[in-house]
Write a protein that binds this DNA or RNA. Structure first.
Lengths: 250, 250
DNA sequence: ACAAAAGTGTTTCTAGTACACCCATGC
DNA sequence: GCATGGGTGTACTAGAAACACTTTTGT
């Protein structure tokens, strides 16, 4: 009776230091001109995870999507006008260095940052070539994008999810910039390196990046040791007794 | 084309110190005799959240369910034989002191504990009147119950979710027993009290509980200050700078 | 008096933060 | 030399775990 669709909020950290989402512009009513998330009807012989990967393959090369996970179900009866359509929403992440070819109606749009809670507004940056904001989101896709952005922000803190937004190899300060964009607050490169190193998420490649035009010490290159999601900081509290200073069991 | 159902894994900590799930025994094939989660078809004019509360009202008094949240979508094409049926699964929690009237085919069944990871098996308890194990779960409901149990366990550590499994008023050691059952590992009453008090989740009622038959100091009664979900320990790491020793802003 | 259960005080540990300082490069 | 960016060493802090000890009851 009711149809089922899958929708993907694919996020990437843009060069300008913004979170961007992959969206396509609707050419027809309803919500003509507004931006919609890629997705489509669930097929008869696929589950939602398979379906979202299939749908994404039509927009971007799926090999470029480093991580996909379910966000939840959006099922308000009137969420799309006309028919009843239930959506399973996904978060997808693409490393910042890949710029996949996308169809003509599709583009990376800047996700508006969440309201800074309590903290004063961050310094105004000299606006470089940033993607245009997601001014008009079709249907309830704005809610889905916000959920995706929040999920990314939360998981960066207690998992190794950084691997999905970072290039294969990177300098610590480049990684810091990605974290700043995704978290929305300043991050110290010094401490970021220490936290990720202590958790054994990062390893040096041995190579170094050449310094910029104004000099400076060449930065060492790092990579994530693991490229699948791992929870690294679960049970911050009330953890099993006797696990005080134990490192991770090998 | 494809139907949509909602399913609720309603959990409770039983008197015997086990996690129990509300289930009903199927009288017909397929999976006759196995235990299934309460739920049913999504109505045309309701979203999944509304629907699951409606479905639960047929099994238990919804006022007794202290917390409900979405777990995810289960959509494998063959998850139920015959037709295509997509399920949105929910976690529900009922305080340990309520024992709602349930239909004849419905009962609380013990959820098998998760495999103890690394830690040695907990002490063998003298088995009291524990609910029978969920030996045969219908369809993919076993997976859903496991997801519910894991979700509860994780959220107990970084939210105030304890309010949903505890009675209105309780002693610290009673609360400790609930946490032990849900977490699956020993918890110190001393430290539990301190952690929850420091986070301002607990407040004394002023009353005390009478000691048991063998004496002992009467225990003070406490309650949760809040009875809606609140994240208390987010961003354990990489939190915004300058928030070092700041308490919660009033 | 003694056992049992509850609760407090105090120490120790660890992860994270802050910050001063040293290193390597371009000009 | 000196400005610039990268990296290390080290002190400080807070939250939590561990454990000894005190308090309040029943027998």
């Amino acid at each position: 009776m009711s149809g089922h669709e899958v929708l993907a909020a694919v996020l990437r950290i843009g060069d300008s230091g913004d979170v961007e989402v992959l969206a396509w512009q609707r050419a027809r009513d309803p919500d003509r001109g507004c931006w919609a998330l890629p997705g489509g009807r669930l097929g008869d012989d696929e589950d939602v995870e398979t379906s979202v990967l299939r749908q994404l393959a039509e927009k971007v090369d799926v090999r470029e999507v480093a991580h996909v996970e379910q966000l939840g179900v959006f099922s308000e009866p009137g969420r799309v006008p006309g028919t009843r359509l239930i959506a399973t929403a996904f978060l997808g992440l693409v490393p910042s260095d890949v710029d996949p070819a996308v169809p003509a109606d599709t583009a990376w749009r800047t996700v508006s940052p969440p309201p800074a809670e309590g903290a004063p507004a961050p310094d105004v940056l000299p606006t470089p070539v940033r993607a245009p904001a997601l001014a008009c989101a079709a249907f309830d896709h704005g809610t889905i994008v916000a959920a995706a952005r929040d999920r990314l922000r939360a998981k960066l803190s207690y998992t190794n999810l950084g691997f999905a937004i970072a290039p294969r190899e990177f300098t610590i300060s480049a990684l810091r910039d990605l974290y700043v964009a995704a978290l929305g607050h300043p991050v110290s490169a010094t401490n970021l390196q220490r936290v990720l190193t202590r958790r054994a998420l990062l390893e040096p490649t041995g190579a170094v990046a050449p310094p910029g035009p104004s000099g400076g010490r060449p930065a060492a290159l790092f990579r994530f040791t693991d490229r699948t999601l791992r929870v690294t900081d679960a049970f911050a509290v009330l953890k099993p007794p006797g696990e005080h200073g134990r490192g991770p069991v090998p």
